[in-house]
Design a protein around this nucleic acid. Structure first.
Lengths: 244, 244
DNA sequence: ATAATCCTCCAAGGAGCAATGGATTAATGG
DNA sequence: CCATTAATCCATTGCTCCTTGGAGGATTAT
């Protein structure tokens, strides 16, 4: 029994290592980005607005904890989540945090409070309407994330391009927008924009993360070596990028 | 977009608070105990073998993170998990840790390696055999935890009492033992002991934690004010208790 | 080879956290 | 009202972790 007390504390120490790896805003941001697509270090650094050295260090912590793994391709190193269970852990953490901490809930309500019920769509409804020909499904995440995995039949229009590509969206039918996850604000902004332009638009209540966790069908366009435009190292720290 | 970067980092800070609360072996031990039953501070301190002041401090961290809540009853204060989602988060953390860190897996194998497949039973099998009259289901956790919630029809024989109460267990039929969770070693030791005494015994592959998470039926014998035998404060630190 | 790119590793400071012991508050009982 | 039990609060000490800047390794292109 005294021995099992020992093993107990040791195994709890291992559990704590994993929790510790998630106990930092920067690392959570990296996990959030990686939950959508595989990415290289500089790309992550830009997206999270964190210096490269620090990004590398935090990725090492995540890898030592077994949460991410890496792959080399030429001079770049691509990181990805170690498995679906890690995605699930991240999602559960967010759910609890959202539910238990009023501060977090208030924050994610964003400007103008939560979306009205009339503006959201459930997963099941999306599944039913996928191929009816009357519904347009828009993935408003960055193209890299769309390429990694998206809902079959969805078209990719990143939020930044939505205003300029509004003409691609028919006025008559119904439009459904989705983004990364339940807490991601991209699709809500997309709905505002679409409605402001006379479309009948709603958003998926959750996002690609939950879609994947429920093992719903997904397509991907995996091209070897995502082409990331090279840019001078000096600019890395400055740009705030598409981090939301 | 720059604003959503701001909200992003703030909300990630909130998520990190929750993760940070779990990033400590002592607090994980407390969560583990609380996942089985509501308990007061001194009881927790004894079970986790941690000084009372420290226990109180760690419980405060857990409460500030929204993971536990408390209830006063006379001079004692009882803590419990804040909700099922917290239980789920803890279970997911353990699952990932177990799966990703070889060290954790090796540790929980305990003496003599993992239990052989022939010795474990699935939840479904237990459900089928519950009322067939030929199977004895034994809850080998401490009585407090049995009282809080147990599988219907199970009898309570804490592991410490199993050897002396062996005569209560019929020799002919089948015996199934279960304990706290998949990583808890109590039921495995119980199976060894039972087999050493000529019983045909197996263990549930998981435990009460997973049983509850899958919303399977549970009974409880909630008596107001769990009777915890008073003992001099000085002994608290010394005893190693039933912490495994 | 040499240079350039991308990333990791190393050292140092500063901030934050864990653990301890003693003092303080809250409730109960004589 | 005082004594006792139960738990929290507080201050201090030692330690770990975050962050940054620059040196060094690996890979590719010239």
């Amino acid at each position: 029994m005294s021995m099992s007390t020992h093993t107990m504390s040791t195994v709890l120490g291992e559990f704590a290592r994993v929790a510790k790896a998630m106990a930092n805003p920067v690392r959570l941001h990296l996990l959030d980005l990686l939950s959508q697509a595989e990415r290289n270090v500089e790309d992550l650094a830009v997206a999270a607005d964190v210096p490269i050295g620090n990004t590398s260090a935090q990725l090492k912590v995540l890898r030592d904890a077994g949460l991410v793994c890496s792959r080399r391709e030429g001079t770049r190193i691509f990181y990805r989540l170690a498995g679906e269970d890690v995605t699930s852990l991240y999602a559960t953490l967010r759910q609890v945090s959202q539910h238990r901490l009023p501060a977090a809930e208030a924050l994610s309500a964003g400007r103008g409070g939560t979306a009205r019920p009339a503006e959201v769509v459930t997963r099941e409804e999306v599944l039913r309407k996928l191929w009816d020909g009357k519904t347009v499904l828009i993935d408003v995440r960055p193209t890299v994330e769309y390429a990694s995995a998206h809902i079959p039949g969805a078209i990719s229009i990143p939020l930044e391009e939505l205003r300029s590509r509004m003409n691609e969206i028919p006025v008559g039918g119904e439009v459904i927008a989705y983004c990364r996850s339940a807490h991601c604000l991209l699709s809500r902004e997309a709905v505002w924009l679409l409605r402001a332009h006379g479309r009948c638009a709603r958003q998926l209540e959750e996002g690609m993360l939950e879609w994947r966790l429920h093992c719903l069908p997904a397509e991907s366009q995996l091209r070897r070596s995502h082409v990331v435009p090279a840019r001078p190292r000096a600019y890395v720290r400055a740009s705030s990028a598409q981090s939301a």
